[in-house]
Each structure stands twice: as C-alpha cells, then as structure tokens.
Amino acid sequence: MPLPGGTTEMEIVLAILVGLLAASGAYMMMAGRLIAYLFGLIMISNAANIAIFAAGRLTYAEPPLVPDGEYTPMTEVANALPQALILTAIVIGFGLLSFALALVFRTYFELGTTRMDDMREAEPRNMGGNS
C-alpha cells in the first residue's frame, strides 16, 4: 500500500543511499584506525536512522500532528511511530559516540597508538600457534 504523493521513488533512492552509507561506514570501521572507526560508526548510525525512516514510508511535509478542533488527524500525515523510534536512536547513538570517543582518547594515551591492529595487550602476538 504505497502512500500517495510521489514519495515511493524517494523511498527507493533512500534504500540505495542507506546501503551506500552502511558500506562506507563498515569500510571505515574496518580500516584499522580508531579515528576512521569513529567516523564509520557515525555513518552507520545515520544509515540506521534513515533506514527506519524510509521503512515507515515517507509522507511529504505533513507532520504527525492533531490539528486544533479535531480529535484525530483527518488528512494523511507522516508515520509517527518510526519518528519516535528514530528520536530514541539518535540520542542513544550520541551517547554511544561520546563514550566511544572517550575510550579512543584513553586508549591513545595508554597505548600511544591509534592503529587498532597494534593493540594486543589482551591477546599478545605469541598467544596462538604455540602448543
């Protein structure tokens, strides 16, 4: 049941955009530098939010409000549920990011590097391969 207003095309484009964002974010996270990792994390957060938004279908310029004098919205308004979910997700994502940023800071001052593959305190290089 696609919504009227020519928004289906934008949903498709957003689906592709979400894939692009997620792929770029994943690539940055796998790049092996803590700062790039943070950038990737931000991009994946954005991708997730857009994904939820598009999956709830788009309605052009109709905020989910109940107009004065009415009990329920009489015209077609934007889907309120994904918006509520995204609001939560944005704030949680921000909390995650600030904690990750603090960890990156600590890690750099403890280990003196931002290269992730050089961080082997917990699993030293000679741990495997030897019986």
């Binding site: 894939g19 692009l20 994943a26 790049a31 994904a51 999956a55 279908r57």
Partner: peptide, 24 residues
C-alpha cells in the same frame, strides 16, 4: 575490507527494497 563492505551495503539495500515491496 572493501569487498566485505560492498556486500554488506548491498545486503542492506536489498533488505530495504524487500521491506518497501511489502505492504506497510
């Protein structure tokens, strides 16, 4: 990493398209 990232992104786009093709 690039191959993994591209396949991951394609997976998400495919999933999104499948969701959009299903009635809300």
């Amino acid at each position: 990493s690039a191959v993994i990232a591209v396949l991951f992104g394609l997976a998400i786009t495919a999933a999104m398209l499948a969701v959009l093709g299903t009635p809300l």
